[in-house]
């Protein structure tokens, strides 16, 4: 399942239809950006400019909001986004070592995407599964109570 990152006309149309169906656009910038990221997978400059025009707000405002919130990303994530929980409970149980192990295996740091677009590593702030700490999620799958030497085996499923 390769992620389609093209900025196609259909995608822009889908976003426009969504905005047009909103009863009110005042104050709904974040809602629209959630939808946009859902459609495009990320929020590149072109999408931000489009949203600004559509909602009749300045591009600076859109950019300001996109960069403020950690949920929004201007870089596309990998096909498999490895989410390492870096919340306190996971930290105390060794999450940093897990993140390091993934970095070492994939040759990318937290926040980066591999050159082939296959993997990215994202550091998360507490997903609330503290009973499973340290926790990593990849897509729908959750890996709990991890140790650094389990990392290689986990990646085998995705390579």
């Amino acid at each position: 399942m390769a992620v389609n990152l093209e900025l196609t006309q259909e995608k822009f149309q889908e976003l426009d239809d969504y905005v047009d169906a909103l009863p009110e656009t005042k104050g709904e910038l974040i809602k629209v950006l959630h939808k946009a990221q859902n459609i495009f997978e990320y929020l590149p400059k072109e999408v931000q400019i489009h949203v600004a025009k559509k909602l009749k707000v300045s591009t600076a405002k859109v950019f300001g909001v996109v960069t403020f919130y950690s949920f929004f990303t201007m870089e596309p994530k990998g096909e498999y986004d490895i989410n390492v929980c870096l919340g306190t409970a996971c930290y105390v149980r060794g999450a940093e070592k897990i993140a390091e192990a993934f970095s070492k295996e994939l040759g990318i740091s937290v926040g980066e995407t591999s050159a082939d677009g296959k993997f990215s590593i994202t550091g998360l702030r507490c997903i609330g599964a503290c009973g499973l700490a340290p926790v990593v999620t990849i897509g729908e799958k959750t890996y709990g109570r991890l140790t650094a030497d389990m990392v290689k085996d986990i990646l085998k499923d995705y390579k």
Partner: peptide, 8 residues
């Protein structure tokens, strides 16, 4: 509902 976007 209003969804947040990740900011402590």
């Amino acid at each position: 509902l209003t969804l947040g976007a990740g900011a402590f």
